[in-house]
């Protein structure tokens, strides 16, 4: 048996594992696990309107940021 098969399988599985780890780390950094009670309840408020509201809020945030950038100072 060629040993490169083992090397390849080892590499592939570690790579897949690393992707999952990266996603988990991103979640921690983003504060997804900060508020255990809210995290479990958030799923109740997850309809289309909520998504729209969230998008609007994001737009509002960006518009303010832009305004700051163009401030003539």
């Amino acid at each position: 048996m060629d040993s490169w098969v083992i090397a390849m399988m080892l590499g592939a599985s570690l790579f897949l594992g690393a992707i999952a780890l990266a996603a988990f780390l991103w979640g921690i950094k983003n504060g997804q696990f900060d508020d255990e009670k809210k995290m479990m309840n958030q799923v109740q408020y997850d309809d289309e309107r909520e998504l729209n509201d969230a998008a609007n809020q994001q737009r509002k945030k960006e518009s303010v940021n832009k305004k700051e950038e163009y401030r003539p100072e």
């Binding site: 900060d34 508020d35 009670k37 809210k38 309840n41 809020q57 945030k61």
Partner: peptide, 9 residues
Amino acid sequence: VIEAHINYT
């Protein structure tokens, strides 16, 4: 109001 984040816990 740009962001309001409330911690439930």
